[in-house]
């Protein structure tokens, strides 16, 4: 008996030791300015989405990332390293994008990342480069016309997104109680919609467009439930990189390049 409880204590001690090791690793500040580090490395590492058509999308035919956010990354690489090809893309999801930015695997996230007050405490954002809004994708024969019809229904959202909180706030005002189910990736939410696990697929309208095109029995509802302002996220403390990115975005806005790119990707108003 004695021996067993010793094992239990030892296991818990291991967990605690692990915590402190990780914590110690996190608090170590890097003295070297980030831009110098990237220049020495010669390549910019960017986290983008792989499944959001028009923003960050892995084209299965060409095996290349493409979209507005990919083009923004290439532009930053061109201004920073003099070559738009010196970018290394990493596919991220709403759930993983913070982790890989935090552990230094990537330099920045350009992945339909909405600027919120809470997130501002944890990462630095560039100026807004695109504004989107939460919309619903439903089955055509579902009879759902908007949030008001979702009482006791299940709404599928993506893990790591702010969709659930935004919708829950507004549902409370309407005095209805929808249930929420969070999934790892967007295709899983579509599968959940198709198999009747959820009755609504809720996320930013730009994301939904692709999934609507994948299933003829679904339709995007017109109502928007939020104003999502996308920004480029950099790790806190990398002030030089943050300022550089801000300058690039501002230039793209004032020169009209950003508007032109949006037209290319069919994102214009």
């Amino acid at each position: 008996m004695k021996k067993r409880s010793w094992f239990a204590v030892l296991s818990l001690a291991l967990v605690v030791a692990l915590v402190f090791t990780v914590a110690a690793g996190c608090s170590k500040p890097s003295k070297q300015p980030t831009i110098d580090k990237i220049k020495k490395r010669g390549v910019l590492k960017v986290g983008v989405k792989a499944d959001v058509l028009g923003f960050g999308f892995m084209n299965p035919a060409t095996k290349q990332y493409e979209g507005l956010e990919v083009d923004i990354a290439k532009r930053i690489a061109k201004d920073l390293l003099g070559d738009s090809k010196k970018v290394e893309f990493t596919a991220v999801t709403g759930k993983t994008r913070m982790g890989v930015l935090d552990n230094g695997e990537i330099d920045m996230v350009i992945a339909t990342f909405t600027i919120t007050e809470d997130r501002k405490k944890l990462v630095d954002f560039s100026p807004v480069y695109h504004v989107d809004g939460i919309q619903f994708l439903v089955k055509k024969d579902s009879g759902i016309t908007g949030l008001k019809d979702t009482d006791k229904k299940t709404i599928g959202v993506a893990k790591g997104s702010d969709t659930q909180d935004r919708l829950a706030e507004q549902a409370a005002k309407l005095n209805i109680k929808p249930q929420f189910a969070s999934f790892e990736t967007y295709p899983e939410i579509l599968a959940a919609l198709q198999s009747g696990r959820v009755q609504v697929f809720a996320t930013d309208g730009s994301v939904l467009k692709y999934y609507e095109s994948q299933d003829k029995n679904t339709v995007i509802l017109p109502d928007k439930y939020s104003s999502e302002e996308y920004g480029v996220a950099t790790k806190k403390g990398n002030d030089d990189l943050r300022d550089f990115v801000a300058k690039v975005i501002n230039n793209m806005v004032s020169s009209g390049d950003l508007a032109a790119l949006k037209r290319t990707w069919g994102l214009g108003k």
Binding site: V19, V22, A23, C26, G94, K95, M98, G99, D118, R119, L122, K159, G160, D162, Q164, D165, S182
Partner: peptide
Amino acid sequence: YHADVWSSYNLLYG
């Protein structure tokens, strides 16, 4: 599930 959802929203994975 709850740890996933909670931590990815609050960004407090550890």
